[in-house]
């Protein structure tokens, strides 16, 4: 069973190798004339006056948290969907109750304005 996954492992390694070989080729073939201005971070010709890793909006965290909840939800739905034709009405009702709880949460966050960007 697991040997089916061996070509995938090989493919991932080859993917990483291609992503590595191409820049290495570029490093060897390309010119190399470093100069302090060229190597400074790009800021439309200005000198960068502070570190770029600044504070950012807390909404991005909020989106990330909501994403985890919904992604877990999808992870729950996947096995259910695969066997859906076998479990019939019982499985359908059970999942609908689960989805209803999720929708209540979704409606709450919508009303609270967690999905607003202005």
């Amino acid at each position: 069973m697991l040997e089916n996954y061996f070509p995938i492992l090989l493919f991932i390694i080859i993917g990483l190798a291609i992503g590595l070989i191409m820049p290495i080729l570029g490093f060897f073939l390309g010119t190399r004339q470093p100069d302090p201005e060229k190597n400074s971070p790009y800021e439309c010709g200005f000198e960068a006056f502070e570190d770029a890793r600044m504070k950012f909006d807390v909404r991005y965290y909020l989106i990330a948290i909501l994403f985890i909840i919904f992604d877990l939800e999808i992870a729950f739905l996947f096995p259910w969907a695969v066997v859906f034709k076998d479990i019939g009405l019982f499985g359908f009702v059970a999942m609908m109750i689960f989805l209803a709880i999720l929708v209540i949460g979704f409606a709450y966050e919508w009303k609270k304005g967690a999905l607003e960007w202005e």
Partner: peptide, 30 residues
């Protein structure tokens, strides 16, 4: 593109800077 200079900015994290394209490429192929 092959013969262009690869610029690594002074303030950057060199290791992550170089492996980031790799991490985008590998899943797109795999």
């Amino acid at each position: 593109l092959m013969f262009k200079e690869i610029i690594i900015p002074t303030n950057s994290d060199r290791f992550l800077f170089v492996i980031a394209p790799m991490l985008v490429m590998a899943p797109a192929l795999a």
